[in-house]
Computed example of a mutant assay.
Amino acid sequence: MSILICISDLTEKQEFKEIDGNSKVHTLPRKALWSRVTSLRPPNKPTHADNAQKDSKTRTLRRLIIEIEGISAFYLLRELQHFTQLRLQLSANPALRGVDILWLQLRPPKKEVIDYKWNLILAHTLWERIEVEYLMSWLSTLGGGFSALGEQFSRCADVAGKISLRQLHIGLRLGDPFLQARCKLYYSISLIQTGRLRQAKYIIREQYKFAMKQKELDGRLVKMCQGIWLRLQYEYGLRLKTKKSTPDIHGGSSDK
């Protein structure tokens, strides 16, 4: 046994749903509503649908309009979905005899219901997110300054790496994988500046693979990986050039 329900909100926006015999709720597009109504009508009773085959302009949708508050409508749908006996009683109700669709017209409640506990949790979470974003902006500015100085002073590069790790901890708390990936890339820059090229190489490769696996490609993250990878290649080139120009044990130079 299926029940067709229309939910019309305060802006007169209508959403059509069907609760089937397996207690599943399906959303029906408006175009498919009439065909579904005619398929659910008893075949042994003549209806206006029979005349509609001759005249497509003749269509009658029999509905029962009930004005109800939004919260009550929500619980009514839940009860109809989970309790088969309630659906049977509703279909046997004389008021619904010959009715095609149950029309729930939402109305403003007489008294607004405010969930103060949830509002407090939401306000605290929102304020925490604002403070964390503010802290991240300061850390990014500070880390960028130390990273720039790290080109000449290794101690500043170490400080920039510690700031990046601190940002990573914040990213882990926020649960944002893209922010975590950017923080790891920031840390890889510190590794390059301090000569730990192999560790930086593994981090950059890992973040590039992560960026390319996403359904929605983050161009900013991909370009960061490519840019830092070029910097890594440059440092490897300098290291190789230095090794070639280093004198051997016989006092000569290996750079020929």
Rank of each mutant, 00 (worst) to 15 (best):
Q89G: 15
I65Q: 00
A32H: 08
Q199W: 04
E12W: 04
Q207R: 15
T27E: 03
L88D: 11
S253N: 13
I189L: 08
L174K: 13
I114R: 07
L230H: 01
S137W: 04
Q89C: 10
D255V: 10
L90P: 12
R129F: 03
I68G: 12
V159H: 10
S8K: 13
L230I: 04
I203Q: 01
I163A: 01
N119A: 14
L33R: 12
C156R: 08
G237P: 04
S72G: 01
S254N: 07
S56T: 11
L142R: 13
K111I: 11
I121A: 04
R198H: 09
R239S: 00
Y234L: 00
L120C: 03
K31M: 09
S8Y: 06
K201H: 04
N44V: 02
L238K: 14
K110Y: 03
S35K: 12
V37D: 07
M224S: 06
Y234G: 00
I5D: 00
A95L: 08
F146P: 03
T60P: 01
I3S: 08
L106K: 11
I130M: 00
V99K: 15
G144L: 01
R231T: 11
H169G: 14
R41N: 00
G195T: 04
D9Q: 08
P108A: 13
R107T: 14
A32I: 05
Y187R: 07
T58Q: 11
D55W: 07
A95W: 04
S190A: 15
R107K: 13
K243D: 02
C156K: 10
T84F: 06
A148D: 05
E206L: 07
V132F: 06
S137V: 02
S8F: 04
F16I: 14
S23W: 03
H26C: 06
L172M: 12
Q105M: 03
G175C: 02
P177Q: 10
D115C: 09
A160N: 09
A92Y: 11
L40Q: 04
K117F: 06
Y75K: 15
R182G: 01
A92R: 13
I249K: 12
V25F: 01
E79G: 06
G21I: 02
P43N: 10
S154Q: 06
Q226S: 13
S23Q: 14
I5F: 00
G252R: 06
Y116R: 14
R107A: 06
M1I: 01
D176R: 15
K111G: 03
Y234F: 06
L77P: 09
D9H: 10
Q167K: 14
V132P: 05
L172K: 15
I19A: 03
G161V: 08
D20T: 15
Y186L: 01
D9E: 07
I192S: 00
T246E: 09
I114F: 09
L102C: 09
L168K: 14
G219P: 04
Q207M: 13
D20F: 07
I228D: 00
E151F: 05
Q180A: 03
G171I: 01
M212Q: 13
Q152D: 06
H124C: 07
L80A: 07
I65C: 01
K117R: 13
F210L: 05
T47R: 02
K24R: 05
K57L: 05
L104N: 03
D9C: 09
Y208E: 12
K57F: 02
R59C: 04
